[in-house]
């Protein structure tokens, strides 16, 4: 061969690509969560930062520990581990011992991601898996809610945070029920403005509904999010609770309360939309969303737990392969018989 020729490259067409890449999409979600994260620190002070940090540390540690040598740097760079840690942290109560938060992040990644073969292969949302594990493992600590920092300022740390590893958290003086808990067990309704602006007790990231919506709009504008999923979740929750409150307005919560209370917005916008664990087909996305919405209301209203977003999403994660399989899009030029 003549040496004057350049060493030609063989790369299968198409050569052109659109600009978006997967790590960019991950980072977008991080940006979208920034306001809600900042709000959590505003409400819960340094504790919030510590818990989020512990979760991220646990998640990244698991990534690093179990990844193969060559994949090690990669899995850290694509930011998915950090995202998982952050999302998990936002679902935890502010007074949780840090070691539990760390454990949650670790287990979430280990059981939720690593064993499946890493990013893109997991079938359950790792953050929610971590939370489900924590909730099943430490039911008391995970359901002990503390009120937002009052006057102590940013640097006040909840006593529970600093429990020694494997040891119980000291009993904190003041506890407060979440709006959902108050609704379920005391039939006490929290005003909507408090739900929107965060003057409530609850997990780190679920307190301020408006900021979560804001992030969602950002993601939607960036096209990083399948709008069908949050839309169908919120719609089905609205409709379901509207029907219920028509039946009995005292016992059942109002539609807006249902949407803005608890982790629904956080779950609907950031967790259920995790592309890896939600259906890929448009019709599947609708079914998935409706399923989540219905399950959330079922668990909240008829179940034993005040909140069901996590379980609803995990259950629908489990059903995702089936949904995907039976909602294949109609192929061009084929009737509706396509499988």
């Amino acid at each position: 061969m003549k040496k004057t020729d350049p060493d030609l490259l063989l790369f299968h067409a198409p050569l052109l690509r659109q600009g978006m890449t997967t790590p960019k999409a991950m980072r977008d979600v991080l940006y979208a969560l920034a306001p809600a994260t900042a709000a959590s620190m505003w409400f819960f002070g340094l504790s919030a930062a510590l818990i989020l940090g512990a979760c991220i540390a646990g998640a990244v540690m698991a990534e690093w520990l179990f990844a193969s040598q060559e994949a090690r740097g990669e899995s850290l760079r694509d930011a998915s581990g950090i995202l998982t840690g952050l999302l998990l942290g936002l679902t935890l109560p502010p007074g949780l011992p840090l070691w539990m938060a760390f454990l949650g992040g670790f287990v979430g990644i280990a059981l939720g991601k690593v064993i499946w073969g890493g990013l893109g292969h997991n079938l359950f949302n790792p953050a929610l898996l971590g939370r489900a594990f924590l909730l099943a493992t430490f039911p008391i600590a995970m359901t002990t809610w503390v009120p937002a920092v009052s006057d102590g300022g940013f640097f006040q740390v909840y006593a529970g945070n600093l429990a020694l590893p494997f040891m119980q958290a000291p009993v904190d003086g003041v506890t407060a029920a979440t709006p959902l808990g108050m609704m379920k067990f005391e039939q006490e309704v929290t005003p909507l403005t408090n739900l929107m602006f965060g003057k409530i007790s609850g997990s780190l990231g679920e307190t301020s509904g408006l900021l979560l919506l804001l992030g969602g709009v950002y993601l939607w504008l960036r096209r990083d999010l399948d709008w069908r999923i949050p839309a169908s979740i919120l719609l089905s929750v609205l409709i379901f609770s509207a029907i219920l409150s028509l039946v009995d307005a005292v016992r059942f919560p109002s539609p807006l309360f249902s949407v803005f209370s608890g982790g629904l917005l956080l779950g609907a916008i950031y967790m259920a939309t995790d592309p890896v664990t939600s259906p890929v087909t448009p019709r599947g996305a609708w079914i998935f969303g409706i399923g989540v919405g219905v399950l959330v209301m079922l668990i909240r209203v008829f179940g034993g737990l005040p909140e069901g977003v996590m379980y609803a999403i995990l259950l629908m994660n489990a059903a995702t392969p089936l949904i995907d399989r039976y909602t294949q899009p109609r192929v061009f030029g084929r009737g509706t018989d396509s499988k």
């Binding site: 059981l111 668990i299 008829f302």
Partner: peptide, 18 residues
């Protein structure tokens, strides 16, 4: 492990209709 995760997810149904 998948079964364990499923079992964990099914814990959400605890107390349903009771």
């Amino acid at each position: 492990i998948i079964a364990g995760v499923l079992s964990m997810a099914f814990m959400g149904f605890a107390g349903l209709f009771s």
